[in-house]
Design a binder for these strands. Structure first.
Lengths: 224, 224, 224, 224
DNA sequence: TATGAATGAGTTTTCATTCAT
DNA sequence: GATGAATGAAAACTCATTCAT
């Protein structure tokens, strides 16, 4: 997204109510871009305004402070999320296939929101209020949903017996950590990105039963 | 570490050469404390000086800029590391036990350096030079060593056949990600912190072979 | 005067010409309220608009700049003034009684306009143009009229012989200064506010003649 | 005081302890000058810094905020005050002469501090905290002292019988109000400034007794 | 005429860095 | 070497004013 890509956005604005919403999103897009590039503190309102195609003053008509922009990003993260549907399907069909597909979808979804994550993550470590809201609104619900799905699979003997809460955190942490490693510039991961879902699925399901071993070796979705 | 705990450090200084080194470390300790608490940008030299028990001017006798302090932390991360010895032992004895112990040790080691990590991590995302050095000096060597160890285990059929490079990243990412989740305030992980090494080992080794299954169920180090 | 008390004023407007005038006054009322509360600089057009029940843009249809609002207040001060009649009556009847009554009336009049005064006064010190107009249009005429009245009284031996111009300024200054002391929060004055006119009259007339002494002690209007 | 008159002040600084004090006063002098000229809000830190001969940053090494500068002025007003001695002498000698001399001294004293007053006065109306401190630290003590002195005179029959508290406020208000009128540009007062003390004394003492009348007419201190 | 969103100049304040002592 | 006062560039934020609707 170029720093000037939003300049014509004004023309597209519709009714009075939607204009405000559109303007808000326009600004948040600019903020995401700059925050993700330089981090929250090093980003200046001037830059964000330029990237969003508005004046500095306008930003303050929509967000009370620079920090409010950060919280605005959280809201956006919330809105663009279709977690609910995501895990529901896990329980049906060939579990391993479903799981692998699910992981792939999650990775892609996160990939799209990577800039948003890069923008938020460092601040989450230092801003207590932001962290609390993130935990309550994003991490918490996701974990609960996943625990349910994992618990279901385990009950159905479709997954190795273990503590669902812990397992979910291990898998979630793995996805999260692998993503961070990639953000940090690990080349190997970038290269093998396509086999990642399969590798993760293998790790989880190989422990299930003897026959799962061959499945790991020969079957499954090909890396795209 | 209290903000005033270093005030008397000056008295303990020895020879001329070591005095300078000690002073450097004194300053880096202060920097770690403050960076970890407030992040790099929000930390001020004044605060760091106070935490380190020196004056602002003195800091500039040892570090050219505030950013150099950050790079100084990297050096410190390097020094305190005994990675070499760490993975060497993996190849011998009961692999699973060793692995589990190893993971535990790693987690504890990282735990000690958590402040250092909190201080560095966010900046790694935005400071290209820092990131490059981190990858070259820390991540790279660690990964290579671990790849060697994992590769050895796999060759000895002591670990499930898979791409060692990818496996190492999955495991490393998991440790890393789980740590981040905990830093973000996940309560469940904090509660189960002691079983974590076993859970990770189970995940890795259960996929191995039929007999490993019972090992997962009955054996193993108890949670402390 | 509540911040929302003027919202329905629009409905009461009459002919085209008076509508404009009414709107002007509506705005000036809002300006007075806010200026008096926060001072000229700290008052914002947005606040004034809200207090006046109009939009910011509308204010600029009636006043070219924020400073023009200030000058508008001067005009209002002029209009509400019935100084002419005020001093005329001084020359007749029991001078002391009349004087005392007059002072009381003046104090009450000023009391009503206190917000206006609070709004204007500080700016008078720093805005040369405003001050000049204030002197020419308000202070000057008032002083002249009062000088005439005082001069008349002195000529009629109804008042101690003295320079009328100076005496008027002493009395005017006293009224003014006492008012300021009260605005600054002096409690004693607030408590004795009702006897003030008598005390001032006593001060002025006791110097007249021997018999005025007892008048000071026993007679006179009671404090309400 | 010109905007650049303090540039060489730095050279005159002495010991470490006094340097800080001198720098503080240097800054307060600049603040007084600019506040008195343009008012608190319109004054900018940049201007004050230039007038004080320091950089903007330096001001913030001595005062936490712009408002703190204002409170610093209050402190200065306190220090330069020799009220205590002032009223003590009233009780002795020819009361009227003493009083007149006292008023003259007060007027001169206030004259010196006129810039300080101009700087503070408008803000006193709108800044509650400032006003409270001003009342407690300046107005209150002054009034109490004067009440004592006036009460003493009245008890000694050297002054017309009246409520001392109210009388003090009338006289104080008169001095204050006359000063304001002069600040507002009244020419008459500027012209008669020298006779002011006598005129005020006359007003107060003529009400005393028959023989005081001639004193008012023929005697007394000549205008300088 | 009335509206209120948009603008950007101008303000206070912070803080890395320098340098005289 | 050590100190910490001085500096001024740069940032967040405010608000009078404009102007399209």
């Amino acid at each position: 997204m170029s720093a000037h890509s939003n300049f014509e956005a004004k023309a597209e604005l519709g009714t009075n109510a939607t204009r405000a919403t559109a303007r808000r999103e326009q600004i948040l897009a600019g903020a995401t871009e700059i925050f993700a590039t330089k981090g929250f503190e090093r980003a200046t309102i001037k830059e964000i305004a330029r990237a969003a195609g508005v004046s500095e003053g306008t930003i303050y008509n929509y967000f009370r402070t620079k920090t409010d922009l950060l919280f605005g990003l959280l809201d956006q993260l919330n809105e663009t999320d279709e977690r609910p549907a995501a895990f529901a399907q896990l329980a049906s069909g060939d579990t391993r296939q479903m799981f692998q597909a699910q992981i792939r979808k999650r990775l892609e979804g996160v990939g799209e929101k990577l800039p948003l994550l890069r923008a938020l993550l460092p601040e989450l470590l230092f801003n207590e209020a932001l962290r609390t809201r993130y935990l309550r609104e994003i991490v918490g619900p996701t974990m609960q949903m996943a625990e349910g799905a994992f618990g279901g699979l385990m009950a159905a003997r479709a997954l190795r017996q273990a503590d669902p809460a812990l397992t979910v955190r291990l898998v979630g942490g793995m996805v999260f950590g692998v993503l961070m490693l990639e953000m940090l510039g690990d080349q190997e991961l970038a290269r093998q990105r396509d086999i990642l879902p399969k590798a993760i699925a293998d790790l989880l399901f190989d422990g299930m039963a003897p026959e799962s071993h061959e499945s790991s070796a020969g079957s499954g979705e090909e890396a795209r």
